[in-house]
Write a protein that binds this DNA or RNA. Structure first.
Lengths: 160, 160
DNA sequence: GTCGCTGCAAAGTCTTTGCAGAGAG
DNA sequence: CTCTCTGCAAAGACTTTGCAGCGAC
């Protein structure tokens, strides 16, 4: 029988991530700047799925000396996304949220009341997706799944 | 064993849909206008998942005499979405696409080359989703799944 | 006739781009 | 030194809103 698990572990060390990033930059003739490092670090240290605006806000709080512009955040996120170091998620809400792509693949279950996102992965569904894709004649590249519901916390809140 | 099927059938007649819509409007003290009818009709007759802009364009072509404004399209789509008569999808691309919610639940497989969307439904995945949600302590409201890949057509194109 | 609806244009969001000075390599 | 980055502000894309006249009921 297959296992599904609440998925919260980082699967990569920050040091490794940083050196990957530096290598990526070098390989493309790009420069390693403080702003880029801070953005990566914030993404790494945040448990949340961040919006560009939220990320910018966080950076202004923790590294106000840099006075980082929102445009740089957008530019760096695009860069990271194109390099497949981060993944963007667009759920119903407007705007995208970003997460580090360095984690293993996983799906999301989103609370419609508090917007909290729980991650999980289920082998049975994963393998079934592959079967279906093949049957429909597609070559699978990626997939994503979201379940929307009300989390335990919010269920209890409502009862009171 | 469970079945997955390419999902293309309408499960509702237009007449029924229209009368549901009229009833919805009446129940909320809203008016039935030609613009609203045309928007519903376009959504019904289109096999595509339409963007607001695409829908507007289509209406201008087929019913140029109405000179329908894009704002009306947005307003009607919101109305229909809030009433759960249409569902909005937001895949990676910017902007939302809309589809009639009158069909049964189904998932999407999207070609990353031609953007064509194929719909399917799989009982095994559906039931597994319910199990997982329950185990994580959530009350499930909805869910959506997207697979991204390259469709048969585009695979052949690339070979040539 | 009343009150909601519509098109238009203006205003809002969110994101991208142009530019000149700053900074990494 | 060179060539990329950055912050700023302006421009873009997409969506929402205010308003005055229009039209469903």
């Amino acid at each position: 029988m297959s296992a599904y698990t609440e998925f919260t572990e980082r699967t990569i060390e920050y040091t490794k991530l940083l050196s990957d990033f530096k290598q990526l930059l070098k390989a493309n003739g790009l420069k390693f700047t403080i702003q880029r490092e801070v953005i990566l670090e914030m993404l790494y240290n945040s448990d949340e799925h961040l919006t560009p605006e939220g990320l910018h806000h966080l950076i202004q709080q923790k590294h106000s000396e840099l006075n980082t512009g929102i445009a740089t955040v957008y530019r760096t996120l695009s860069l990271l996304e194109n390099s497949e170091m981060v993944t963007s998620l667009s759920f119903g809400a407007q705007g995208k949220k970003y997460e580090l792509g360095a984690k293993d693949h996983h799906d999301h279950i989103i609370c419609t009341q508090c917007s909290h996102i729980t991650e999980f992965v289920d082998e049975q569904i994963e393998s079934r997706q592959k079967e279906i894709t093949k049957s429909l004649g597609f070559v699978m590249q990626e997939h994503s799944m979201q379940i929307y519901g009300i989390c335990k916390n919010c269920q209890e809140k409502t009862k009171k």
